[in-house]
Design a protein around this nucleic acid. Structure first.
Length: 506
RNA sequence: GCGCCACUAGCUCAACUGGCAGAGCAUCUGACUCUUAAUCAGACGGUUCGGGGUUCAAGUCCCUGGUGGCGUACCA
């Protein structure tokens, strides 16, 4: 960012409008510059705080001089001594500064010029205080970065809004926030390793797509100037990964950012991270096994005896996922056997159940509504919902036994959907008919209906082997393993409305 | 999109029925050579989210705009 753009940056602001706390820091910065460099280029550490804790016995025995660096979180001054907790990347360590060790000048400089929020490097030896806290006795120190802004108050929770808007403050103040995002990285890493171990090839496909497909959602739209072409941010990468299966890669996966131009709530953010994978010669049964193996790996690592605690729930993975057929689920919860009803009866029964029926909703869409209302909230323990009506799943292959259904499953845990999978439709003529049906729905006003992708059909006509496919919402999965009930807690920078006039350039 | 609630010092929050805008932390000055939300004494700090209205008087009531939270709708 150029300095021109930083009109509200502390150092650029008019003295009159600058906050007095910042003013005070700037005054100190000025004074520091007279004798020292407040922003040196590097600092060589010998240990991190965590390493000091781990290697305490050896380091103390050897009377070793250690060098650490981190952010000053508070200053506890006691006359001619000071205690300061220092936070570095992995953790924290207390340091102890003493006048008769540092000398008058260095001690007074430390006391006056080093503020909470400043980043310093410290050299010294390890000892235990009377209250048995491992501490570095400071023999020398160096200011590494002067902080010009006050940190939030230290013993109340920051407001949720501030945590999300200024995530760096949340990360500075709350080690458990750092831990949560470290865990997110570990979950994603385990999934990636799992897939690679299962011989899946990681690939990358376009984020900017001339047609959006592979899911049912409204897209973000943008424009490519050189080509004078409308482009869409992807809502899924499904159709591209299938092209790769056509091309002969037999197992592929992608961690993809998808973008959906829809509402936001505790399980939806306009951009989110999905994992999609496809395996040639598999069907949805193979994908169910894959998901169970993957989840067991994660639960082994992050859970306890095959269980994880999520909010008020104890989720038990030790027996895999329960299998529940879509229509059976509805029957179980509503007592109505929709399979045996004709279209008019479906409408009547749904109305009787209190489901709102909008214009242009077909039979299957109504069933989906019934399912969402009565069944989904009940799916707390790991469950695969399978064999959906065809209209809801234009990219899934027809069921080999039941007419009107497709081979599809959705994984539900704690009442929300974490994955979706099909035996992929590879008959190009049937796929064309499905797209045509979607176009009809679109014409009738269904804004989310999928669009016909001629290039994708051409790929299918070239021949895609029987294939199992899977899409998994990684943010939601991370929510499960971090016991978070909002997607914002597992996104470092969740979507927020811009503050004041920080929106666009115009 | 709709409904309800909130917005007060840098941060977290008080302020009764409309009657002088407050505390803790942070900051500054001073004391203190083992502190743990350090302690003690003092000081500084306010466009009560913006705009309009009612009133002798508005943080408080009304209208309007903004941002957020929760719920709801839409949604892989």
């Amino acid at each position: 960012m150029s300095t021109n753009e930083q009109n509200d940056d502390a150092t650029q602001q008019d003295a009159a409008t600058r906050h007095r706390l910042i003013e005070e820091r700037l005054r100190k910065l000025e004074e520091i510059r007279a004798t020292r460099n407040p922003y040196p280029h590097s600092y060589t550490r010998t240990h991190t705080s965590v390493e000091l804790h781990e290697q305490e016995a050896d380091l103390v025995a050897a009377k070793a001089t250690v060098r650490i660096a981190g952010r000053v979180m508070t200053k506890r001054k006691a006359g001619k001594t000071m205690f300061l907790p220092l936070y570095d990347g992995p953790g924290k360590i207390q340091i102890y500064a003493k006048k008769d060790i540092l000398g008058d000048e260095d001690f007074e400089f430390f006391k006056k010029m080093i503020d909470t929020g400043d980043i310093i490097g410290v050299e010294g030896t390890l000892f235990r205080t009377r209250t048995d806290e491992l501490t570095v006795e400071v023999h020398g120190y160096e200011l590494l970065t002067k902080s010009l802004r006050p940190l939030p108050e230290k013993f109340h929770e920051m407001s949720l809004e501030l945590k999300c808007r200024k995530r760096y403050l949340d990360l500075i103040m709350n080690l458990e926030t750092r831990e949560r995002f470290r865990k997110r990285s570990q979950v994603l890493d385990m999934i990636r390793r799992f897939l690679v171990d299962e011989d899946f090839l990681e690939v990358e496909t376009p984020v900017l797509q001339p047609l959006y497909g592979g899911a049912t959602a409204r897209p973000f739209k943008t424009h490519h100037n050189a080509l004078d072409q409308t482009l869409y941010l992807r809502i899924a990468d499904e159709l591209y990964l299938k092209r790769l299966i056509v091309g002969g890669f037999e197992k592929v996966f992608e961690f993809c950012k998808d973008f959906r131009n829809e509402g936001m709530d505790r399980t939806h953010n306009p951009e989110f991270t999905m994992m999609e994978c496809y395996a040639a010669y598999w069907d949805y049964n193979g994908m169910m096994d894959l998901v169970e193996r993957m989840m067991m790996k994660l639960v082994d690592r992050f859970g306890d005896e095959g269980r994880i605690t999520y909010g008020e729930y104890e989720l038990d993975f030790s027996n895999g996922f329960r299998r529940l057929r879509f229509l059976d689920g509805i029957k179980e919860e509503t007592g109505v056997d929709f399979a045996s009803l004709d279209d008019d009866q479906v409408v009547a029964e749904a109305k009787k159940l209190g489901v709102t029926i909008l214009k242009g909703m077909g039979r299957d869409k109504i069933l989906d509504e019934v399912f969402g209302t009565f069944v989904e909230p009940k799916l707390i323990q790991p469950t695969f919902v399978l064999d959906h009506p065809v209209e809801l799943s234009p990219l899934a292959k027809w069921h080999r036994e039941d007419e009107g259904l497709v081979e599809r499953f959705e994984g539900f845990i704690a009442g929300f959907e974490i994955c979706n999978s099909f035996s992929e439709l590879n008959d190009p003529q049937v796929q064309r008919e499905r797209f045509m049906a979607q176009m009809d729905l679109k014409a009738k006003g269904d804004e989310e209906a999928q669009v016909l992708d001629e290039d994708f059909l051409e790929a299918l006509e070239t021949g895609m082997p029987p294939t199992g496919g899977l899409g998994m919402g990684l943010d939601r999965l991370v929510m499960l393993f971090t016991d978070c009930n909002s997607i914002r807690d597992v996104l470092l920078f969740p979507a927020m409305r811009p503050e004041e006039s920080q929106g666009g350039l115009d």
